[in-house]
Design a protein around this nucleic acid. Structure first.
Lengths: 332, 332
DNA sequence: TTGTACGCGTTATCAT
DNA sequence: ATGATAACGCGTACAA
């Protein structure tokens, strides 16, 4: 089966290529008679327009780039899913890449997307590649930062408030009587990690609690690092009675770690930024700062589409407020 | 910032466009002197070749399509992640779409991918769109079916053996003394669901057990349907003492359902096709048929790349054998 | 070693 | 209402 082009269809239908194009795009006038003949030929030959040629001619790729840090984190995948659906519904295709929290990979992804002339970019960044991002934004391509801001780069932004809920969570822990609170944080190059860290430390200080350095563990948002963290914390001379974990994956790791050490999962009071959707299945003393990935995705896609479809240019910052929920109060 | 083309670079470097192209693609001879000048110009202007034009000219899109049923199922996302990494490493880009187990969406995705002239396709199908798939394969585009075959469509295939492990699992349940075994299956249009179903029923029959219709629930591979299933099963006059669930998400739902009904999670012996990676955290009597999404992804990408890069044409069927593991024996 | 010019499959402009 | 044709940005055969 040879490569089928618009010319073949034109020949088959006995009209010019221009007419085929007009029928397929609904542009210009075409008599009902000819239209039917063309459509018949298209169907018979099973012709499908070449999107690449169309893109070149129109100087529009109809594609959007998205770079997320972790394709195996349900939080990001929910965002991805939401965005994907909205964009496809509007006739865009999504070029979706995974940076793996690695600025180098992120940079490569960025390069690839630019070569493909994406019309817009959605990014949950690693914190690096600031210069490229600035250039990119300067060049007029709409960029929407998702979940995380990139300090020094000003762009549209959809994220969740990190500070407020963390403060609330810490106040809860203190009021519950905890005096030794462990902290498992993410890489400080990532804005969400930094904000959660700062807010946590400040809230405790204001509550009159000193946070010993040995109670703070710097993880990398991975399950594995959460596990290592809790195992280190629980071996302290005075182990923490409560722990704050800065994301869902590390919290998961935390519980796996406790389990492995033979420590009851409900012996430690835990606050997690981000949900563990299976937590009702085991005994815990878990409170969660509930995130809203669907809202994030929806807002981000909405803002991007506004710029793409309606040339909106004002910059938007949408902050979604996560809710602090004591799951143990609900489920046990 | 205007749109930058190869001509601008040529002008800036004082050479012809052909030379620029040669430098950038490492094709043909270019003097070291000129090469340096060109690269300097490229960097200075921050020029990036237009992948769309390149694709058109070369009649190669350098992109691969992938359609998976569920972007929120960790099993599929692990496959996706693996494939994505391998393909990107070889210079391909991955157009990744989500069919949501819906043949209509799958069809749209297929159309979009064909319009984009993907050079290969990876598909975990819904079971529909057979005619299109046959055409597609006939047209010479390498297609690798992933995780699921599509009956009546012959193509390369990487999947896991469904029958063997299920038989093993059923024999285990029977030998453990269970006489009332519930079954939660997926849609029979999906090959994995059908195979698991048939194998389960046959194994029980051969063990001399009649499976009452009321013990069989037809789910849709979703968490929600697993929950509904168990809630129905446990309300039977004689509730099952063991349940077989045909995928990970339904097993998750199963436990959520038990939890909601106030039934101890370890009161029912469960066999799940596909792992629950958090199961060590709660009391269970769970056995798992462990799948190997990384192997699936790796093999699938490998086969596709062989065809793409080395024109291999022989058809391959790779069957991976999942291991039956009694998790309770390990973790409790 | 380098430059000229054509063509990839479309869409859009200008005739008719 | 329809057709001829230029142009989108690039790679490459051919010429020099």
């Amino acid at each position: 089966m040879r490569k089928l082009t618009i010319k073949d269809v034109a020949k088959h239908a006995g009209v010019s290529t221009a007419t085929i194009s007009r029928v397929l795009n609904g542009s210009g006038y075409v008599s009902e008679d000819v239209r039917r003949r063309v459509l018949a030929s298209v169907k018979e030959l099973n012709y499908r327009p070449n999107a690449i040629a169309r893109s070149l001619k129109q100087e529009k790729s109809r594609s959007i780039g998205m770079i997320l840090p972790d394709m195996s984190n349900p939080y990001f995948m929910t965002i991805a899913r939401t965005i994907q659906q909205r964009l496809v519904a509007e006739g865009y295709r999504l070029l979706f890449m995974d940076s793996d929290e690695n600025p180098d990979k992120e940079r490569e992804a960025l390069d690839a997307l630019l070569s493909n002339r994406v019309e817009g970019l959605l990014l949950a960044g690693t914190g690096g590649n600031k210069e490229q991002l600035r250039q990119l934004i300067g060049s007029g391509i709409p960029v929407v930062l998702v979940d995380r801001c990139v300090p020094g780069v000003s762009a549209d932004l959809v994220m969740e408030d990190n500070r407020g809920p963390v403060r609330q969570a810490m106040e809860y822990l203190v009021s519950a009587g905890h005096r030794h609170i462990g902290m498992i944080h993410g890489p400080k190059t990532i804005s969400t990690a930094l904000e959660r860290y700062e807010a946590a430390v400040r809230a405790l200080q204001e509550a009159g609690l000193q946070v010993g350095e040995e109670y703070v563990y710097s993880g990398d948002f991975s399950r594995k690092s959460g596990k290592q963290a809790i195992q280190k914390l629980m071996k302290l001379p005075v182990p923490p009675t409560a722990v704050f974990s800065a994301n869902n994956e590390m919290t998961f790791g935390l519980y796996l770690g406790l389990q492995e050490m033979g420590i009851g999962l409900d012996e430690v009071e835990v606050v997690s930024f981000g949900d563990l959707d299976f937590s009702s299945l085991f005994k815990h003393r878990l409170s969660v700062i509930m995130q809203h990935p669907e809202s994030i995705g929806d807002s981000a896609a909405g803002i991007l589409l506004d710029k793409l479809l309606h040339q909106k240019s004002a910059m938007e910052n949408r902050i979604i407020i996560p809710k602090f929920v004591q799951k143990n109060k609900l489920s046990l």
